[in-house]
Every structure is written in structure tokens, then in C-alpha cells.
Amino acid sequence: MKLLTHNMLTSKCIRGVNVGYPLVINIIRNMKLFTHNMLTTKCKKGVLVGYPLNIKASDIRISSVDFNPDFISKIIPKIDWPVLYSAAESIGHSENLPKEAPPEDYETNEDFLKIAHKALLEVEVVHGELVCPESGRKFPINNGIPNMLLNEDEI
């Protein structure tokens, strides 16, 4: 939801409510793109790679997380960069992220580390689903928690 829309909404239609404005936005927790970068559906029967999972997001949020440059530069080599990029792009938050790979001087490039920090730890999917690229199986994300449980006959 855009804040412009929020700005227009009231709950006045509820019986007994006189003003119903402004509505309080409850913050909902979310899955971070770091977590997405690690998830696969390989454990599912018949799936060979199961990576990367497609994201269909219906709700995105940005939360504020303390910036720790040492941590980010340590975690960069673990990240599948094109997957991170396309995940960020698919939910409309790829701004300033390099497309192919991190810059060579990434360990000392604070501007880049801040961009990576935001993409990895601050952009969050609240509601949506993850789709297996091979089987098409959908995994719902509700309240920011991806549900990766499989039925017994799927394992």
C-alpha cells in the first residue's frame, strides 16, 4: 500500500466510529533477501537444483537495521549476486545495485556496502509467495515468514 492511499483511508464506515482517521499501520515482519538467497527446493522429490526461487511479492517493507560494514563485506562472497539483483528488481528495489557482480573494491567501498546492506537486510517481503522454478510449487509468505513445509508425498 502506498502512503498516499493510507492518507485517504478511514474506518468511518464501522458502526459507532465517528472519525476513524488516521489508521495506525502495524508493522509486520518480513523475509530478507539474504534468506531468499539461501533457499532452494532441492529436497523436493524430482527437483535437481531448485534455485533460485521466483518471488511474487504483494507487500514490501523497508525496515531500519544498524549498518555494520565489516559484516556486509564478509557476507558479500556468500551471496549469489545475480539472484540478489533479480530478486531486488522483481520487487522494485534494485536501485543502484550492480547487476552482475559487486565492485572489486567492495570491502572498502562504503557507498556500495550501504546499498548492499539495504538490499540484503532492510528490504522485506511481507506477503507474497515463492515459486519453485522447476516444479512451479508455490510457497506462501505470510507476515514475512516463508512457509517451506512440504507434504509427505512431496518429499
Binding site: 523475509m31 533457499l39 527446493t41 514475512g144 515468514i145 516463508p146 512457509n147 513445509l149 512440504l150
Partner: peptide, 11 residues
């Protein structure tokens, strides 16, 4: 962050 899954089945 949290993930709903079986601990014995983590990717």
C-alpha cells in the same frame, strides 16, 4: 528473520 520449515530439512 524466520523460516517455517523442518529443521531436519533445511536447504
Amino acid at each position: 528473520d524466520s523460516i517455517q520449515c523442518d529443521v531436519l530439512n533445511i536447504p
